[in-house]
Design a protein around this nucleic acid. Structure first.
Lengths: 211, 211
DNA sequence: TTGTATTTTCAGAAATTTCTGAAATAAAAG
DNA sequence: CTTTTATTTCAGAAATTTCTGAAAATACAA
């Protein structure tokens, strides 16, 4: 497998990005390679192209398969497994989101439910209970949103994204002030839940109506 | 700072989740602690509560401040810095999303633009160029979406999430088949971009119209 | 000034994650 | 059955990340 300079650059970068998001660098590199490849590759080709050990490739491929973004195919007259990457990007990120939900968000929800429950019972944890409950509500809403997107076909997603982009151009900017946070001055509302809710409520309704 | 069992459990879990998403465990723990705390804490309190070195706390707090989710305040008659966490969850995750965009998505976009450009020029990289271009388009759309959400006030976000959740209940399920992937049977469309686009296009329009 | 409290920095230690190569296993071919 | 080819497993090596404690820097007070 011969890589162009551009391809190589992308693979390296994808590996680095993977690391930053909690995905093994090699796994991400193998993913990037298969994503770019026109044809399915066998493990040996991947080893050679990326200069990593055969065993490492084996484990990385298993991992990618467990995420549902890579699968095996076979070439006539060749005993070896060949590997190909999901080609539709939206489907690919959907699969990843799905898997992260299952592996990380759902366990977090379970913990939050238990903790909120327990804190509610404890007379000394009134404030903690409130904070945990709020976090729980956030994650529950997030799940609803996820499930919603999960049901929409890819084309709807892309069109919706475009639509959302054009609508937002007509709205006044709301939260651009994070770019260069002023020393210690006017950023009050983000840190004070009550103030934030109150301030925002006044100006939110006409924005919401656009949805 | 005395922690309830529930609070401690949450902090430990939040630390683990942080790791999985590329955030230092300690940083996440400090964040969780401040999130739960009714009042701002000084560094020494954080050390003691979490049993970590003073220097580690110092660095973690700096990190959290750079993410814009923690800031310093002061208590009358106390020279020490006290630290408090952004209390509004939506604002908090908005800040995090903002920062990750700046640190990770924007550099990725830059790399993708360069790679796509370069591959386009290379006669041997026709397919790679196409793949890179597609990835670039995805990230650009994602950015539009992000910017859109960035402009909406928190209340609009929560209401929209609820709305989206209830709409989706009326749609036929589209992509639940990832839950238990069948050995190697009908999952063709996810891996074949063309097939996927064609299949989906037939059924997508009435779904999209709901938006 | 000088002293004291607080915070930051940083070199090296500790812990964790990742990677390798050799050996074991599996699966087909002869 | 034996040989050959392909894949997986896994103990230890290597690399990376995280953490600590001591020292330096900073800021305020007397």
């Amino acid at each position: 497998m011969i890589l162009s300079a551009a391809g190589e650059r992308f693979i390296v970068h994808w590996g680095e990005m993977g690391s930053r998001w909690g995905i093994n660098r090699t796994v991400a590199q193998v993913h990037a390679l298969l994503y770019l490849s026109e044809r399915p590759l066998h493990a040996e080709e991947i080893c050679e192209t990326l200069s990593i050990a055969r065993s490492n490739v084996s484990i990385s491929l298993k991992e990618l398969q467990s995420w549902g973004v890579v699968r095996t195919t076979h070439v006539l007259g060749d005993r070896r497994d060949h590997f190909e990457c999901m080609q539709n990007i939206w489907e690919m990120f959907r699969a990843i989101a799905n898997e992260r939900k299952k592996r990380e968000v759902e366990p977090t929800l379970a913990v939050l439910r238990e903790c909120a429950q327990q804190a509610k019972k404890d007379r000394d944890s009134k404030y903690e209970a409130q904070r945990l409950q709020e976090m729980l509500g956030f994650f529950e809403l997030l799940m609803e949103w996820h499930d919603h997107l999960q049901r929409l076909p890819t084309t709807a997603l892309t069109r919706f994204a475009r639509l959302a982009g054009s609508i937002s151009k007509w709205l006044p900017p709301q939260h651009e002030n994070h770019e260069t946070p002023p020393p210690d001055s006017t950023a009050e509302l983000e840190f004070d839940s009550a103030a934030s809710e109150k301030t925002v409520k006044d100006e939110s309704d006409e924005d919401l109506s656009l949805l």
